[in-house]
Simulated assay, not measured.
Amino acid sequence: MTYEHLDLRVDGDVIWATMNRPERLNALNRKLVEELRDFFVGLYWRRDVRVVVLCGAGGAFCAGLDLKERSGSNTDGKRSVGAGLTGQRQISEIVIAMRRCPQPIIACVDGAASGGGFALALASDVRIATPRTRMNAAFIRIGLSACDIGVSYFLPRMVGSSVAAEYMLTGRFIDAERAYQLGLVSRVVAPEALEAEGAAFAKDMLNATPLGLRLTKEALNHAIDANGLEAVIAMEDRNQILCAQDDDFGEGVRAFLEKR
């Protein structure tokens, strides 16, 4: 599928996906929502892609839903319940696909990551920020609930329920320094170094075997909601045996012993 607002660049086993609506701070219009959903859903079946780097063009990551574009409205300007729910599910399916796809996702977050953009950053596996990064649950500032597009699932698990409540009940911005203190982002680098830092993370991930990388993301996702230690151990045991049967495991051992 050829995309209009999502630019894809293939670099070996890595795909760089860039939201490209800089004149609107990469806000999510219907077309970009459709393209993100199609891209991430399709990744589930792709073995040629091992890592994804998600970026925003210009000086922003994603400013959230494009409020200038509204459809399915009644004559009084309000969206019908049916149209609203359909539109909501079309967006929320993106973050479900992001967690379901086996490829680790590195989010290079520069500038604004608000509302839906915040959700996209949280749904990624690793987040890298710049000093001008500002993230918030903007939904509550426009009369909606801050619990939207997976934010109420991801944020408390990452920073704890008290801090999540602080930012979700107020809509306050999390700046880069605070995000790093909370462990919400892994690095804070200058804007001009952001791409190189994303590439460095991707390179390190590619040192893993294809199967080991995929199963590690899968196990991490399940471990967050596992019933207990024994359930997690059982899943880890299964993954190690699966990886040990793969031809790449033998090569990995040889590479380690030969220091290469």
Rank of each mutant, 00 (worst) to 15 (best):
E69C: 10
F40D: 00
N20R: 14
E35R: 06
F173C: 07
D204Y: 14
G250D: 08
F61E: 02
A244Q: 07
L43S: 04
D11G: 07
G250H: 12
C147R: 07
V189R: 05
A137D: 02
R47F: 12
P210K: 12
E35Q: 05
F39G: 00
R47N: 11
W45L: 02
G12P: 06
E34G: 06
A164R: 00
A107W: 06
A208Q: 09
L65V: 11
V95S: 01
D48H: 13
N227D: 03
G117F: 15
C243N: 00
Y3L: 01
W16C: 10
D248P: 00
L25A: 15
D225T: 10
G87Y: 05
R47G: 02
L155M: 06
D13Y: 11
A255K: 13
D110Y: 04
M235R: 10
T75A: 09
L144R: 10
Q90L: 13
E177I: 06
V53H: 11
P102F: 02
F118N: 03
C243W: 01
S80R: 13
L144Q: 09
N227V: 05
E197C: 10
L36H: 00
V232R: 08
N227R: 12
A193K: 05
A119Y: 01
N136M: 15
N20C: 15
L32W: 01
